[in-house]
Design a protein around this nucleic acid. Structure first.
Length: 430
RNA sequence: GACCCUGUCGUCUAGCCUGGUCUAGGACAAGAGCUUUUCAAGCUCUCGACACGGGUUCAAAUCCCGUCAGGGUCACCA
């Protein structure tokens, strides 16, 4: 039975790199019908925080990676101590006293060659004579990362360790521990790192790093997962849009790339827009509800759900991020709309009273206030005035929406309704 | 500095294992156009890469060596 684990330390939010590591662990476990274990590495009492644990669990769920088991290292200090004592007894470790008299347990590293057969990179060889003796238990009594990690992976029966490239140099140290404690050695697979646009590891300086940042910016979890998936893996055959379920079918760890990949926000935006376009509108609305309420687009009780869904549909193909909707669709929800000054200067500086009046009276005469009829009415007005359609469309759009960009004008009028359209145009009639 | 990893368009990648079908394919971005009612979307086209140098071979992006470049690690952090 395949068992993998994702082992974040709660010293910060779940970041992009962690999310990607979690993704590959999750994918591998699913594709192998194995188990996905989550282990919180909270041995650093100073830096570990409960709020980060909560945030990490939340983000993992948001991405859709459910775990089968959950452990905390802070609850297992006794285990680490026991193993350290055993190594002390067998003479593989020794005690070192600090000047203050505190005792640390140190592992004696013997010179030899250590070979690792990495599932992604093939064989890697290390020389342990280059590795100094390793601290097992610090003088404050807590275990070091490599020591706790090995004991946990062994006792939790982890069969495959899938983690970032930055752990390659930890691997020989850990193998020494496995052997010293008589544990079977698991398989290793080291994922390439994700780099920022300016080179070097993705960091806050090069853009948002936390998964939750992307959630707040309006990225869909499936789009983010799809993007992360493509960052170091490809199924071949030019496939790009791949859902999680399909990825589980296609995934093979041997196809994971060895090269570090640069995080490109532009492509993420594109990916997100693809998912946004195809997502069920009612589900997207659900995601937007908190924001729409906060912005007072939606009032308690006075909210027509179907209407909001229709409006969202109008914008869906135009969105790169879900949150764009809030900025672009305000005029459908608020009565007091802001007119973009530049747009006003360009399209509403001359007197359009005659044109607007004629159009309104045309709209009022419509038996059936449909998108098609609104357009027909508009075309008649334009013909009557003997002007180009553009000459009236742009001013109308600005007067009705306050913006120069947006959905088709006739749909805008249809969803605004006769009453609101008339009111907004009336303001420009002298 | 030492050790380790990696090098295909600006970016993500296919191809590499099992040399020839590669005058290197796709996607994002960029540029141009079509459509048009603005912005998007969509469609069409353009630009653009095998890091370099040696081998091996009839033939190398593909195999070997070297160089260079980028990255990672060298904590009583994880």
């Amino acid at each position: 039975m395949v068992r993998v684990r994702f082992a974040p330390s709660p010293t910060g939010n779940l970041h992009i790199g962690g999310g990607r590591t979690a993704l590959f662990n999750w994918l591998f476990s699913q594709s192998q019908k194995g188990k996905f274990v989550l282990r919180i590495e909270d041995t650093d009492k100073e830096r570990s925080r409960k709020e980060y644990v909560d945030e990490i669990l939340y983000s993992l769920k948001w991405l859709g990676f459910d775990w089968d088991e959950l452990y905390y290292q802070s609850a297992r200090f006794d285990r680490y101590r026991e193993h350290a004592d055993k190594l002390l007894k067998s003479g593989l470790a020794y005690i070192e006293k600090s000047p203050e008299g505190k005792e640390a347990v140190i592992f004696k590293v013997a010179p030899r060659k250590i070979k690792v057969n990495d599932l992604i990179r093939g064989e890697i060889e290390f020389d342990s004579s280059l590795i100094k003796d390793q601290v097992l238990i610090k003088s404050d009594g807590t275990p070091t990362y490599n020591f706790a990690c090995v004991i946990d992976d062994a006792e939790m029966n982890i069969t495959h360790i899938i983690r970032g490239d930055d752990h390659i140099s930890n691997t020989p140290k850990q193998i020494l521990f496995y052997e010293a404690m008589g544990f079977p050695i698991p398989d290793f697979a080291h994922l390439p790192l994700i780099m920022g646009m300016s080179g070097g590891r993705l960091s806050k300086r090069t853009g948002a790093t936390a998964i939750s940042d992307y959630r707040k910016m309006g990225y869909l979890p499936d789009a983010l997962v799809n993007y992360l998936l493509l960052l170091s893996w490809a199924p071949g055959g030019d496939r790009e849009i791949i859902g999680k379920e399909e990825a589980v079918e296609l995934f093979d760890i041997k196809n994971v790339n060895k090269t570090a990949a640069t995080f490109d926000l532009k492509k993420l935006d594109w990916m997100n827009s693809q998912y946004l376009k195809n997502a069920p509108s009612s589900e997207l609305l659900e995601e937007l509800m908190p924001l729409l309420t906060e912005k007072k687009y939606i009032r308690e009780g006075g909210f027509d759900r179907d209407y909001a869904v229709q409006i969202l549909k109008l914008f869906q193909a135009r969105l790169a991020r879900l949150n764009d909707f809030v900025d672009w669709a305000d005029f459908f929800f608020l009565d007091d709309i802001k007119i973009d000054p530049a747009a006003q200067a360009k399209f509403l500086s001359r007197d359009l009273s005659g044109e607007f009046k004629l159009f309104i009276s045309g709209l009022e005469k419509l038996d059936n206030f449909s998108v098609e009829n609104i357009e027909k009415c508009f075309r008649q007005v334009v013909a009557e005035l003997n002007i180009e359609a553009k000459a009236l469309i742009h001013p109308l759009r600005v007067a009705l929406t306050g913006k120069t960009i947006g959905p088709g004008l006739f749909e805008v009028i249809y969803y605004l309704g006769l009453e609101r359209s008339r009111e907004r145009l009336a303001k420009w009639i002298k």
